[in-house]
């Protein structure tokens, strides 16, 4: 199995954001490894998702619940539906460890979520921990650190 190039890693992160923006959630969920997690810490520089509260710490079951909920006929908070928009800086390769099959990227981004007349702008850093599974890159951990992680926030209904 050949290791991904830096360009493969960058392309993966950019594609992942695009799938969210285009509401292609089935394809998006497919990018996660079976034991993959999506983590949005509550605290600045948080190291522990277990004994410190997080905004999100979803495994694939929870992500699946969120995605199914977005489609539901009686999901009133999605009538009308939210839309979102990512602007990414070029992802930077933090570490490549071919022996351990682990690749980490770091991506500053702006994320806009909008519904009805409200539009919220968030600034964040996404840290992707990626791994090759069956010749494809998969997400082991997507960590999203909001610049204002500890602020009084409005609803965040989609994915950063």
């Amino acid at each position: 199995m050949s290791a991904p190039t830096d360009q493969d890693l960058i392309g993966f992160v950019v594609h992942e954001a695009r799938l969210i923006d285009q509401h292609r959630f089935e394809e998006w969920l497919d990018l996660f490894a079976e034991d993959g997690h999506y983590w949005m810490p509550l605290e600045w520089g948080q190291t522990d998702p277990r004994l410190t509260t997080s905004l999100m710490y979803d495994d694939k079951v929870l992500l699946r619940i969120r995605i199914e909920r977005l489609k539901g006929n009686r999901t009133f908070s999605q009538k009308p539906k939210s839309r979102c928009h990512h602007v990414l800086q070029t992802p930077q390769i933090e570490t490549r460890d071919e022996a351990a099959n682990q690749y980490v990227t770091w991506t500053p981004m702006h994320y806009v979520e909008t519904r009805l007349d409200e539009q919220e702008l968030y600034a964040a850093w996404a840290t992707h921990t990626l791994t090759m599974v069956g010749g494809k890159l998969k997400i082991k951990l997507k960590r999203v650190d909001l610049v204002n992680c500890d602020a009084a926030l409005r609803s965040i209904q989609l994915f950063m």
Binding site: L51, L55, D150, A152
Partner: peptide
């Protein structure tokens, strides 16, 4: 008190 406070507007 532990874990941090969630603040929701």
């Amino acid at each position: 008190i532990a874990g941090g406070v969630l603040r929701y507007m």
